[in-house]
Design a binder for these strands. Structure first.
Lengths: 251, 251
DNA sequence: CGATCAATTGATAGAGGTCAAGACGCGTGG
DNA sequence: CCACGCGTCTTGACCTCTATCAATTGATCG
């Protein structure tokens, strides 16, 4: 609702994660001028709709947003959850239209930038260009991470671990987190049934990996969580790549 | 092996898909100077290795490459297949190291660009910057597409449909294509067993959706293929989004 | 023409989806 | 303050889809 007059990247706690990262003081001021306005939103408030013409990129200032894709059969799929410092709408650059509907999960605040202004400024400020490219690249990485997870347990433990690490990077507890979204939302995001989420969380609790109190989660055994996610610190022997012959290109 | 002296974007058939898209004649010449060399590679030749320091971005000129991620448990996952005009290494910008090992699937040719030079030039050439950003955004889109596919049949039909469309965009037949990669590679990419690929392809053949002759595939019923992929042209009622209240932000 | 790798086919079992019922939490109104 | 209703979460029973194991066939290549 209420527009916050103060929208200063310089004073934003997320400046070391978000677009301003690596941009020096004077240049950040130029960036600040592009940030049109902040808005407080509440659970269910829509930021942008799938199919709408792409024009703006958003940055999460606080709270959480989710991006929902509705396929032509009418089924919803949650593409991702957006935490403070993360950009929304990067996947819309290519098709020039938003690919998902983005909605506030909790009471949240958002920054708004005109894409054209952002790219124009990034030609002036190399550090801004670099950071924007990094964030786009990160978007590819995050999406690709789903290729590795096979079983439901891997998906869920990977999700919890990933979320904990993202919160930790933002100054929150590394071991305690709140799943502000519903089980159904998590299920939709991970491509599984909500019932399975319930059962798996229960199993992880009985395994002493997690402690669960409704939506509050405590990570009791982080190494175990990581191992279950399929990323345990085993020696990377690359055995299966033994056949690969290094090309003359790099040899 | 042999280095091709002629590496002209201007004369490349992929210029309307690849980085030069939208860049005017004079500026393309500048871009050409960054393209260090072309190399012919053969099946199994390694372009870059997971973990290597990121420095270069590659563009496929002909043939096909695959990107393989080896997790810490030693399991391989094929992140994607790269067709002519597509860039390789975009996911390495953020972590400054390649995330996957990229290998030639067939005899292929590659262009090589220094990332720093590319970004420097893109500050000079807005059209190049725009196209580079578009391709990064496309990378996010492509990865996100996997969120929608649930069943093995959806994944496989989606994969075949997507591949056919990409070949079509490159001037090949829209209905006939060759799966140059192995069934095992397809399976790894889609997160399923190679046996399942076999069985599903057989089923799609018996349904008269596809005709299969070893690695050659003919799409007999494209609408059916699309429908099976979970993207059939049903009216998008957005029923399930009825609760969503459009925020004051855009209202 | 054997050797090797890729692909198919069959049998089996288990992971996880679906359906259905009940428990819990929470806000609203009497 | 309690009852009611709604949405969320859990739990159980069942069944399907797909992975796995194993054997065979087909293709490719020195």
């Amino acid at each position: 609702m209420s527009s916050i007059s103060e929208h200063s990247c310089s004073h934003c706690a997320m400046s070391e994660i978000c677009l301003p990262m690596g941009v020096d003081r004077q240049d950040i001021k130029k960036l600040e001028h592009l940030v049109k306005s902040d808005h407080i939103q509440h659970s269910g408030d829509v930021v942008l709709r799938q199919g709408d013409a792409f024009q703006k990129v958003y940055a999460v200032k606080s709270g959480m947003y989710k991006s929902i894709n509705v396929d032509t059969e009418g089924h919803e799929h949650i593409i991702g959850f957006h935490l403070p410092g993360e950009l929304i709408g990067l996947d819309a650059i290519y098709p020039k239209a938003y690919r998902n509907t983005t909605v506030a999960v909790t009471t949240s605040v958002l920054c708004e930038l005109e894409y054209d202004q952002l790219t124009a400024l990034s030609t002036e400020i190399p550090a801004l260009q670099q950071q924007f490219l990094r964030l786009l690249s990160k978007g590819i990485n995050d999406s690709n991470a789903f290729h590795k997870e096979q079983t439901a347990e891997q998906k869920l433990t990977g999700f919890v671990y990933n979320l904990a690490k993202r919160y930790e990077a933002r100054g929150y507890s590394a071991s305690e987190l709140v799943l502000v979204m519903t089980r159904q939302d998590i299920a939709s995001h991970l491509g599984m049934a909500a019932e399975t989420i319930s059962r798996l969380l229960k199993r992880l609790q009985s395994k002493q990996v997690l402690a669960i109190n409704s939506r509050e989660i405590t990570i009791l055994d982080e190494p175990a969580l990581l191992a279950l996610a399929g990323c345990e610190a085993a020696p990377n022997t690359n055995q299966t790549l033994h056949r690969l012959n290094r090309s003359s290109l790099n040899g």
